[in-house]
Amino acid sequence: MVHSMLRALVQRGHEVSVWLSRYTDDRTDYDLDGVQVVPLQSRLDAASAIRKADVVVSHLENVPSAGALARGYGKPLAVVCHNTHLPSFRQMAAGDTALAVYNSQWMAREAELFFAEYPKGVRPRSEVIVRPPVFADEYRTKPGDKVTLINCNLEKGGRLFEKLARRMPEVEFLAVRGAYGEQVLPDLPNVEIVDHVCGHEMRERVYSRTKVLLMPSSYESWGRAGVEAMASGIPVIAHPTPGLCESLSEAGVFVDLHDADGYETVIRKLLNDPVEYRLVSKRAKARSAELDPTADLDTWCDAVEALAR
C-alpha cells in the first residue's frame, strides 16, 4: 500500500525517501520506482533526513519514534493506518498528527469511535481514506488451475487450507509461504508450496497459476490480495470480515472460516460448473474496475501537498 502511495508522490515531482527500521541484507541505498530506499545498514542519520523533510510519513511500530522526531523539528506528520487494532489509533492520539490515512471506510468509522472517548485536541487534524492501490494492469493475467492460499499462517486460514487439501486429493492446491506468522504448509501430493513472493512477481508466479483464491482470514482490514486476484477475474472465497466485505463487495463469495463443508462445496461448484465460474469471474472483473486507485491517490497527494504548504 505505502509503496504505491509514495510512487504517486514521485510521479507528482516530489523527492521521496524511505528509511528502513528493520534489519535486511542490503547495505547500500537503492531506487525503487523513483523512491530512494535507505537500508538500516546503509546510513544511521534518519533524524537528519526528518529535519530536512517537508512532510514525515510513518506507520505501524515506527509512529512513536518518527512522531517524536517530527514534533521536535516542527514537521507535519502523516500516519498511514493498516489495521483497527488499538495501538494503531493510540500511537497517533497525541495531538500532533497532521494527517491520518485510513485504508477503508470501516477503519475510518472505527477510528471515529475510538477518538470519541478522547478530547478533540488529540485526534488527527485531517483524515483521508486511501484504499490500498491496485492498478489492475500490473496484475491482470490468464488464470491458472490451482486453488491458492497466500500466506499460510494460522490467522490467514492455514489449518482450513490443509483440511481442504486432504478432503479433495484430486484438486491441485497452491500454498504461498508468507513473510510472517507460523506457516501451515501441508506435505501432500496435491499441494505445491511456493516460497514468499515479492509483489512485482505475484502476477507471474501466483495469479497466472490460480483458478480460485482463498481468503479465510480471521482478520483483514482490507484484503489487497483479493483485489489483485479480481483484476484477472479470479473468484475469491473469503471469510466475511468487515474489510473483506468492503473490498470484495458483491464480487466476493463469503463463507465462514469455520465452515469447512461450505468451503469445499463452493470450491467444487466453481471448479465443476463453468457457467457459475464465468458469472463470479465477471463480477470480479467489474469490482476490479470500480477500485481503480487514481482518484484515491490524487486525494492522498493533494493532502500531503497541503501539509507541505
Rank of each mutant, 00 (worst) to 15 (best):
T210D: 10
K156M: 08
K142L: 14
H200M: 04
A175R: 00
A308L: 03
L69G: 03
V10Q: 07
S249Q: 11
A229L: 05
D33M: 09
R287V: 00
Y277P: 05
R140T: 12
P216H: 10
H85E: 14
G13C: 09
R51V: 00
I237Q: 05
L20S: 04
Y23L: 12
P216W: 08
A308Y: 08
E110Y: 02
S249I: 03
A53N: 03
S17F: 03
M202W: 01
S249C: 07
E220S: 06
P216T: 10
R140W: 07
P186S: 06
Y30P: 10
F135W: 12
T148S: 13
L154V: 13
L244Q: 06
H59G: 12
V128G: 04
S4K: 13
I193N: 07
T299N: 13
M1L: 11
V128S: 05
R123D: 01
V280D: 01
W106M: 01
S58H: 06
M202F: 07
K269R: 13
L149Q: 08
T84K: 07
E276F: 06
P240Q: 10
G158E: 08
P240T: 14
L244D: 00
L213A: 08
R140M: 11
I237S: 01
E201F: 10
M202N: 02
D33N: 13
S232F: 08
